[in-house]
């Protein structure tokens, strides 16, 4: 990454302000809100997978956990500020425990994927089986397959009767995403972020330098879960109901596809991938000619075949080729010195 953080922040503010102003002119804010939320969910996996090398098949688990935590806490507390905070903390703590178990157990690669996938499935099965009246947390019934409806939605902090909904809610979500994006940028510029990238590149080398890889991966995993949890809470507010489908396999798989299509190892890619594909799915859902999972599958296959690094890296290199300053490569430098030698000066 080049440039300074303050430049990054200013750029983020300008770009997001423009988008927040323009996008509602083209797409209904109700739809936009969920696209923004998915963008945040995409970013959460993009952070831990693209920069930390942790392929988590269960990012949906933290998303769902955030949503459920919010719903249950909102019913019990009757306002939204504390539930939002809990919806960030609970998934983060859960991920820290799960992550510690996996990373200190030296699980890597595919085993990590298997464990996170299974955890998601367990939560899915469990939430589905909580229909009975004995499954109650405080005043909130878990509701099993039907989920939890009718909880307090987002309100102005300190005033439970001042609901934030409709257009206002879109602005809240969009600003939240911009803030998370800036925080993620700051994290990646910090020593912690740079070392995380080092871990992605070569775990053994980083360990031989004297860094505790296990602890660092656990922390990063928890940070990713916190972001996913926040996205879950925002999603619960948007849908005004939480159901076990949040934990479903297709939800988990979709997050991974967003990251691949958008571009791993970039901050913007997973957000664009998420919003773009979710919008496409929304459009495809309005027609009945062709099944939309078929199209999604086709897109994924095409991307893996032709743009394996994703949209954003491809666009970035296109930009660099067309407009960028051409940095003198080593070959050019060598040639230059040779020419100089030949001309004798």
């Amino acid at each position: 990454m080049t440039g300074s953080l303050s430049r990054d922040v200013i750029l983020t503010i300008i770009v997001s302000a423009i988008l927040i102003w323009i996008m509602p002119l083209m797409i209904a804010t109700y739809t936009l809100t969920v696209l923004v939320i998915y963008g945040m969910l995409g970013l959460s996996l993009g952070l831990i997978w693209g920069f930390g090398g942790i392929l988590c098949f269960g990012q949906a688990a933290f998303f769902g956990l955030g949503a459920y935590t919010y719903a249950i806490a909102a019913i019990n507390i009757g306002e939204s500020t504390v539930p939002i905070i809990l919806a960030v903390l609970v998934p983060a703590v859960f991920a820290a425990l799960l992550g510690a178990m996996m990373f200190y157990g030296r699980l890597t690669d595919v085993y990590l994927g298997v464990i996170t996938l299974v955890v998601t499935l367990i939560l899915f099965k469990f939430m589905n089986s909580t229909a009975g009246p004995q499954y109650v947390i405080g005043k909130a019934r878990m509701g099993g397959f039907n989920g939890i409806p009718g909880f307090q939605t987002l309100n102005v902090p300190g005033d439970p009767d001042a609901y934030i909904w409709g257009d206002a809610y879109f602005y809240v979500c969009a600003v939240a995403l911009a803030i998370v994006f800036v925080l993620v940028s700051a994290l990646l510029r910090s020593s912690f972020g740079r070392i995380a990238v080092g871990i992605r590149e070569n775990e053994t080398r980083i360990a031989l330098m004297g860094y505790d890889v296990r602890a660092r991966k656990t922390v990063l995993f928890a940070v990713g879960a916190a972001i996913a949890g926040l996205a879950g809470a925002l999603f619960a507010n948007w849908g005004e109901i939480v159901t076990p489908n949040l934990f479903s396999l297709s939800q988990s798989a979709e997050i991974i596809i967003w990251c691949i299509v958008g571009g791993l190892g970039t901050r913007l890619g997973p957000i664009l991938g998420a919003a773009g594909l979710a919008y496409l799915k929304f459009l495809l859902g309005q027609q009945s000619m062709i099944d939309n999972t078929l199209i999604m599958g086709l897109i994924l296959v095409l991307f893996v075949l032709f743009l394996p690094r994703g949209i954003v890296p491809a666009l970035a290199s296109l930009w660099r080729i067309s407009f960028g300053r051409r940095p003198l490569g080593r070959i050019h430098q060598v040639r230059r010195t040779r020419n100089r030698e030949r001309t004798g000066g």
Binding site: V197, G198, E201, N202, T204, R205, L208
Partner: peptide, 10 residues
């Protein structure tokens, strides 16, 4: 270690 162990993309 024996084989170069560095971070290739950095």
């Amino acid at each position: 270690m024996q084989t170069p162990s560095v971070m290739d993309n950095l």
